[in-house]
């Protein structure tokens, strides 16, 4: 699942259109849903971002392979051309801790340190700035790992926020929307933990463990992991046979047999 979080409806529009996501009314802010993505419109600024991100991730807690993309427009110095997509490798906010999303997967976009400010920035800064990223990270890091987050901002202006219209914001983000979704997909694949056991195997293991003592269960877990991580193929048949024991000797014998087979 990809969590796409943006401040304004204009910033989410390209993703809603691309994915044909549908409006949901389960949360008290704009939420669009799709099989592979949840798109949230938080409203602008630190507090809105904090509240909406928290509500979204509480509503649907992220899994180990989910990715959060905070997308939006940002002001930047003249060195960054309007329309440039920047990935933030550092998030700052005056008087608060700095945050560092992990930069794992290669990309060809610009990278920057991004400062989150409290209101639209009219005075030029030496680095790009937005109003939400820091708050999104602060909240999301309670729910997910630093490798699961991506902060993607498109340069909309050189500290002249009054010159950016909603329509322009949609067009500028739309130019990168498809590539960003593909990148998020790739990141999802990259971070997905390899499953050591199939669903069928997991069910059989759980069934077995119900018949064993706690200590035996731990030992069985270790033996199974060792077997599989050493490249062992299908689990021995014994692991799938139902365990009906009436005596602890019988249970011990079955346990020993499985450990030997592994």
């Amino acid at each position: 699942m990809i969590y796409l979080i943006a401040a304004l409806p204009a910033e989410t529009r390209p993703f809603i259109d691309l994915l044909k996501a549908t409006l949901s009314d389960v949360l008290p802010f704009g939420l669009y849903t799709h099989d592979t993505a949840l798109i949230a419109v938080t409203g602008s600024g630190h507090d809105n971002a904090l509240i909406a991100t928290s509500a979204l991730l509480g509503h649907r807690p992220p899994q180990a392979n989910d990715v959060l993309v905070n997308v939006g427009i940002a002001a930047a110095p003249q060195a960054y051309a309007i329309g440039t997509l920047m990935i933030a490798h550092k998030l700052t906010c005056k008087g608060q801790h700095d945050y560092y999303p992990d930069m794992l997967l290669r990309h060809a976009w610009e990278e920057c340190s991004l400062e989150s400010v409290l209101e639209p920035q009219c005075t030029p800064l030496s680095h790009p700035c937005d109003m939400e990223a820091h708050a999104v990270f602060k909240t999301a890091s309670r729910f997910m790992g630093v490798h699961q987050m991506l902060f993607a901002k498109v340069v909309s202006d050189h500290f002249e926020p009054q010159r950016v219209s909603k329509e322009e914001a949609t067009v500028m983000i739309g130019a990168h929307a498809q590539a960003l979704l593909e990148y998020a997909d790739n990141l999802e694949r990259f971070i997905t933990p390899k499953a050591l056991f199939s669903a069928e195997e997991q069910a059989a293991i759980a069934q077995l463990k119900r018949g064993f003592t706690k200590t035996q269960s731990h030992k069985l877990d270790d033996a199974l992991h060792r077997y599989r991580l050493r490249g062992g193929g299908a689990l021995p048949k014994l692991c799938f046979e139902p365990l009906h024991v009436t005596h602890k000797k019988e249970r011990g014998a079955r346990f020993d047999a499985i450990i030997r087979a592994l």
């Binding site: 490798h89 801790h97 560092y100 992990d102 790992g145 490798h147 971070i191």
Partner: peptide
């Protein structure tokens, strides 16, 4: 990419890191 930090622990000791992915 050069990124200026205040203290290495802000980065190295962060919560929510994935050792296996960082190894790559």
């Amino acid at each position: 990419q050069v990124i200026i930090i205040e203290h290495y622990k802000d980065l190295f000791n962060r919560r929510g890191q994935n050792y296996d992915l960082q190894e790559r």
